[in-house]
């Protein structure tokens, strides 16, 4: 089974891209399965079941960071995907934090960005872009040729190895080559590793501390002047 992890900020068109990918995979005789990860509400899984009658699941991360949640449930979801007899598991992340990149070494990492989010976006995204294999740029018909070209050049500046696909996700135009890339990805093994380290862990805020101010927290912490400090447990 092949594993595709699709990340990207909210509302960029991840679901639209994956809908067309599913359609094209089915046309070529493949058996995709779909997992949606979100915080507390998602209906993409139901819509996709209704449209394509393929196996789908969703996981709500609730109190957890959705990308951390994905890291934890990914192994079980691969077991689930295999049990359904699928040959491609498509995972759509919640797409909230630009710092996280839940891509794994043996799977295909796809980020969906919208050209309408401004020419500087590629410079702001970080590992979600730099560790991806493919960057799908949607809504290209909405922006001037100039912004489209600058957007593209800036993706290549920060992520020279990423392959860019410009697409109109509404009509699925430009997504054929993405399906080719998915099918050329090797099957995933039993164990796989994250491509990068997620943001510094043991965040006291994530574990429930509510006091504001640096002195109330320990572990790695940011200072007001953009420094990074370490403080042992208080």
């Amino acid at each position: 089974m092949k594993l595709v992890i699709c990340a990207g900020p909210a509302t960029t068109g991840k679901t639209s891209v994956l809908r067309h990918v599913i359609k094209k995979l089915l046309e070529r005789g493949h058996r995709p399965a779909f997992l949606k990860l979100d915080i507390q509400f998602a209906e993409e899984d139901e819509l996709i079941t209704r449209e394509f009658a393929i196996p789908t699941r969703k996981v709500y991360s609730g109190e957890l960071c959705p990308d951390h949640c994905l890291v934890i449930v990914l192994k079980d979801s691969m077991v689930w995907g295999q049990k359904t007899g699928s040959d491609v598991l498509l995972v759509e992340t919640a797409g909230l934090c630009l710092r996280c990149s839940p891509y794994v070494e043996d799977g295909l990492g796809v980020i969906v960005l919208e050209a309408t989010s401004g020419m500087n976006l590629p410079l702001k995204v970080g590992p979600m872009l730099t560790l991806a294999d493919v960057a799908v740029v949607t809504k290209v018909d909405r922006v001037s040729q100039a912004e489209r070209e600058v957007f593209r050049a800036r993706i290549q500046d920060v992520a020279p190895a990423v392959r860019i696909r410009e697409a109109n996700a509404l009509y699925g135009i430009g997504l054929g080559p993405l399906v080719d890339t998915i099918l050329a990805t090797p099957d995933i093994g039993d164990t796989t590793l994250l491509r990068g380290s997620p943001p510094a862990g043991s965040c006291t805020i994530c574990t429930g501390a509510r006091e504001i101010g640096q002195t109330s927290h320990f572990g790695r912490a940011k200072t007001f002047d953009n420094g990074l400090t370490y403080e042992g447990a208080r």
Partner: peptide
Amino acid sequence: VAMITQHTTFLS
């Protein structure tokens, strides 16, 4: 190919 549509605009 460069394309300018009725929806195309500058965002900057």
